[in-house]
Simulated assay, not measured.
Amino acid sequence: MVRAFAPGLADNGGGAVLNVLSAMSWFSYDGANAYGAAKAAAWSLTNGVRIELAGQGTLVTGLHLGVADTDMSAWYEGDKGDPVDVVRAGLDGIEAGRLEVLADAWSAHVKRSVAGDPSEFYSLGAA
């Protein structure tokens, strides 16, 4: 999709792409490994496309979130963020020229954990 729109953005002096990702770009969860792997790949792709499009003046921003209250998450019983807040965070991030936006506290927590020892994030029953 980005490659399809990139020439039009370049013709107009650049622009912005907001790629909606997930906190699962940075962790795995039992039963959602394919989703997590896809989001990790999308995060990497976002970073690569950012480099490719920088020369044409196109900002590429990755938007990470936990669970937003959408049709996709209707089955989920836990806390969900307001989609309006997620959109606002993404648009504010683009306006500020940010490369990455963490739309909620969960995404910020997960991102911080990436640099740490995985045993501090995952409770696998180790003593």
Rank of each mutant, 00 (worst) to 15 (best):
M1Y: 11
V2E: 08
R3G: 09
F5I: 15
F5M: 13
L9E: 09
A10K: 09
A10G: 07
G13C: 05
G14L: 05
G14N: 05
G15S: 04
G15Q: 00
G15C: 04
A16E: 02
A16I: 07
A16P: 03
V17P: 01
L18Y: 02
L18S: 03
N19D: 10
N19K: 06
N19Q: 09
A23N: 12
M24A: 15
S25Q: 05
F27P: 08
F27Q: 15
F27K: 14
F27T: 11
S28F: 13
Y29T: 12
Y29F: 12
D30M: 12
N33E: 12
A34R: 15
Y35T: 09
A37V: 15
A37K: 08
A37H: 12
A37E: 13
K39I: 03
K39M: 08
A40K: 04
A41I: 07
W43G: 06
L45W: 13
T46I: 05
N47P: 03
N47F: 05
N47T: 07
N47I: 03
E52K: 12
L53S: 02
L59S: 07
L59Q: 15
L59R: 10
V60Y: 02
T61S: 03
T61E: 03
T61Y: 01
L65E: 01
G66S: 04
G66Y: 00
A68P: 02
A68E: 00
D71A: 14
A74E: 15
A74P: 04
W75T: 08
E77Y: 14
K80V: 08
D82K: 10
P83V: 06
V84F: 14
A89I: 03
G90H: 05
D92Y: 10
I94W: 00
E95M: 13
A96S: 13
G97S: 06
R98L: 11
R98P: 01
L99G: 13
L99N: 15
L99W: 11
V101G: 00
V101E: 01
L102R: 00
A103L: 00
D104Q: 04
H109V: 13
V110Y: 00
S113Y: 05
S113H: 07
A115M: 10
D117P: 01
P118L: 10
S119G: 08
E120D: 11
F121A: 10
L124N: 11
G125E: 08
A126K: 12
A127V: 11
